[in-house]
Design a protein around this nucleic acid. Sequence first.
DNA 1: ATAATAATTGACTAATGAGTCATTTGTCAA
DNA 2: TTGACAAATGACTCATTAGTCAATTATTAT
Lengths: 276, 276
Amino acid sequence: MKKQLIMEKALELFAKQGFEATSVQQITEHCGISKGAFYLSFKSKDELILALIDHFMMQFTSDIDYIVRGAIRDEDLLYEFYYETFHSFHKHSDFAKIIMKEQSQTLNKELILKTQYYDKLIENIILSMIERIYGDEVKETKYDLIYCIKGFMNIYSQLILFYNVPLDLKLLSESLVEKTNLLARHTTVPFISQELIQVFTQPMNEEVSKEQILEILEQKIDEIEEPIVKESVILLKQQLLEPTFSPAIVRGLLENIKNHPHCKWISYLLRRYFDY
Amino acid sequence: MKKQLIMEKALELFAKQGFEATSVQQITEHCGISKGAFYLSFKSKDELILALIDHFMMQFTSDIDYIVRGAIRDEDLLYEFYYETFHSFHKHSDFAKIIMKEQSQTLNKELILKTQYYDKLIENIILSMIERIYGDEVKETKYDLIYCIKGFMNIYSQLILFYNVPLDLKLLSESLVEKTNLLARHTTVPFISQELIQVFTQPMNEEVSKEQILEILEQKIDEIEEPIVKESVILLKQQLLEPTFSPAIVRGLLENIKNHPHCKWISYLLRRYFDY
DNA sequence: ATAATAATTGACTAATGAGTCATTTGTCAA
DNA sequence: TTGACAAATGACTCATTAGTCAATTATTAT
């Protein structure tokens, strides 16, 4: 099958030049095949990159998952996680480069969804890992910890991939284990709350419907004391049922409520709904 | 001047669709001007994005620098740094999105250099900040700390920009200050050494010359004890002076030395020189 | 050997985009 | 009002790209 060959060669070119900047012509030349042959294996250029992402992310995700599930001693788990992560990035550096470059930058809907999908999978693996290692210690700060770990993975990958620096995997993993332990054991001020994480757990897929927002609104109205905030929410509810106010007014009302503790969520939903 | 208008409108489109995916046609339509008019203000589409990057990065860099230099109490400095950073990202979210999307993904030489240039500036500002706050405490770990701070900035910006989550700047800054303090005060295992940082301080600009490598090689040869490693280095030196061995042999010799403590650097330089 | 089937080719189409330039429109001083 | 100069236009060129399909070549079965 030519599929394998095309994927390998395209990978090289995408890593070097990016997806958009690489033409099908270039790929087929690099493979020594004709342009038509490409379309025997893939329906389109888009299908190719989706296949590439699937191929590697399935591998990476399952490798990581295997490590996390299979680790015998909790103390070694984190080390093994980091080691496997960077080992994998290093081994498949061409692919890792593509993921870094293409993350969120293209406009292809399907590609974005796919990336988000795997991102979410990895987040869940990390979550189960830190719950296992730290248990209740990180109850309040676990989502922040996930993001810090992702931040480490991100920034140190950049170092490795784009500066291709001499790489001591053991040292890197040890170093990040220490950092992660510090954060896990001593962080007291979380930024990412349970409520907040829900926003992107089921992200911009489907819009939250008007009805859902209304329901939440009604629940909250009674909890609000401050008259200005309360009236603002009531007016926004009216606007939701029957748009009458100008954008400026709506925006102003949203400003009124955005800092009220009970209204963070509402404010967020409405901002999305009214498209600010 | 139309320049201002074009920059504003192009910014919106680039943030939404990316640079490559936005045509000059689209930009001019969005501005309500003709295609020709565009080229009265900018020599090319590339010049436009360079101008945008300069415009905002100059502002951001100088703002951050001002904060860091101007802070009165060291205890507040870090907080102010994070606050200003995320405040700025949030305020200029369209621009921040472009930077995130376009970072390293395009093939335009000048754009990459510009991005690297500002990146380096910001790194230096962070460095001077942590040296001021923590002093000798972070002597061994300061480069790692820079990268952790950059990692935080990166990953939390993504959260804010692409999920546009309700944003409590104060809480976020506080949260990151705590994390940074923890890392600064208790990290003992650095990954990024002084030596390593030199690699990307003056990155792939000019290749290290054969003569320079030879010089370093000669220095190190005497320090090496293990016979296999020593012989490998000597053979590699010969290869450097007069290429005789096949790629496989060279690669094998490099493998021999890559884990020897004295040879990390040499191995790196040679790998680059022989282009592995 | 021959026919049938499958794989492969590359010239071709249709679309798009960056950048140009002859022409038009607007401005303002005399 | 006129003419000289500047600003703006958009049809056009040229290059490039994704994707197609009639024609050719290779493979297999009989």
